[in-house]
Simulated assay, not measured.
Amino acid sequence: MCGRYATTKSNADLSQLFEAVDVAEPLRASWNVAPTSAVPLVRMSAEHDGRVLDTALWGLVPHWAKDLKAGGRMINARAETVTELRSFAPSFAKRRCLVPADGWFEWVRDGKQKQAFYMTPADGSTLAFAGIWSAWGPESVLTCSVITTAALGGLTKVHERMPLILPADRWGDWLAGGGDAAELLRPLSASDLDAIEVRPVGPAVGNVRNNGPELIDADTKVTLF
């Protein structure tokens, strides 16, 4: 599950990092991205003959859905079934994207208490979540889902699932369309994930109305596992 994440880089920073033409709405930094929010993504565009930085609503809405409300239930697509399910398979085949993120949040329950954790690269680099997108309705509203996979290494202590993270050398194949599904959906190794810091943070991130850099500050009162 990936239900909240942070993405704070500017249009200029992301378009440079992903070598993409910027066609996105002006991006606002968010340390508490929630389902149905407008988020940046990188996709292929025939019109621009290559990659574009675009904006989509988080929560994929299939073209046959009655309204955009369906997206709230489809923020994640499981790697194990994304090639099979009617809602996701067409997008996996033809409309894959990268979803830039600084990191993501999960919660660990201990009795009646819940502790929030923020997973982020220790070196401050930007993550690229594997995603899929679709266009809905006469106005072709873009929507997207983040693909999740089984957690590995130390991340299993926080949650059994995690976003499928793609390193830069796999971006081209992911965006190209086609390809071998098993290879495309291959997770990083447990050793690769050692570069991900697991940081306990305060409870404020649990409220979608809260948004600011303080949400990712380490909670020094919490002992990490």
Rank of each mutant, 00 (worst) to 15 (best):
D67P: 06
P40C: 00
A79H: 07
V61I: 05
P138D: 15
A116H: 04
G50R: 05
E160Y: 13
T36H: 02
L142C: 13
D22T: 00
P90T: 09
D49I: 05
S45V: 02
F117D: 08
A12T: 05
A135K: 12
V222D: 13
G124A: 12
W171R: 02
P100F: 05
G50F: 05
S37Q: 00
V141L: 14
T8C: 14
T220P: 13
R73V: 11
R51Q: 01
R51C: 03
G202H: 15
E139K: 15
I147W: 01
W58E: 01
K114N: 11
G202M: 10
G137A: 12
G111T: 08
A130L: 13
V42M: 01
G103K: 05
A130D: 05
F129W: 06
I147Q: 03
F225M: 07
L184H: 07
V82Y: 00
D123I: 10
T7K: 03
N211C: 07
S10Y: 04
L164H: 12
A122V: 15
V198G: 11
I147Y: 01
V201F: 06
H63C: 04
V33M: 05
D169Q: 09
A151Q: 12
G59R: 06
A218N: 10
S15C: 11
L127Y: 14
R109P: 06
V61N: 01
R86F: 11
T55Q: 01
N210M: 03
E197Q: 14
E183G: 11
L215Y: 11
L152C: 12
L215P: 12
W58Q: 05
L60S: 03
K94H: 15
V222I: 14
W136P: 01
L185E: 03
M119I: 14
V33G: 01
A34E: 02
T126M: 10
I75D: 00
D54P: 10
K221E: 09
F105S: 12
P163V: 12
G153E: 07
A122Q: 14
L98F: 07
K9H: 08
T149R: 06
A128D: 13
L85W: 12
R51M: 03
P213C: 08
F225R: 13
E197W: 06
L188Q: 15
A79K: 01
N207R: 13
W107P: 04
D54G: 13
W58L: 02
G59L: 00
C144G: 04
P203G: 01
G124Q: 05
V42F: 02
L215N: 07
D67V: 07
D180G: 08
A34K: 04
S191E: 14
L184G: 10
E106P: 11
S15W: 06
G179M: 02
G71E: 09
T81C: 09
V99E: 02
W64Y: 11
L14V: 04
P200E: 15
W107E: 10
D102L: 11
I147C: 01
W107R: 13
S189I: 15
L164N: 07
A181K: 02
D169F: 10
A116Y: 05
A150H: 12
L60C: 06
F117P: 06
G111L: 14
T223F: 11
N11T: 09
D49W: 05
Y5A: 09
A79C: 06
V61G: 00
E47P: 02
K66N: 11
D67Y: 09
K9R: 14
P100R: 11
V158R: 03
S15N: 10
A77F: 07
T126C: 14
S37P: 01
L53V: 04
D54L: 06
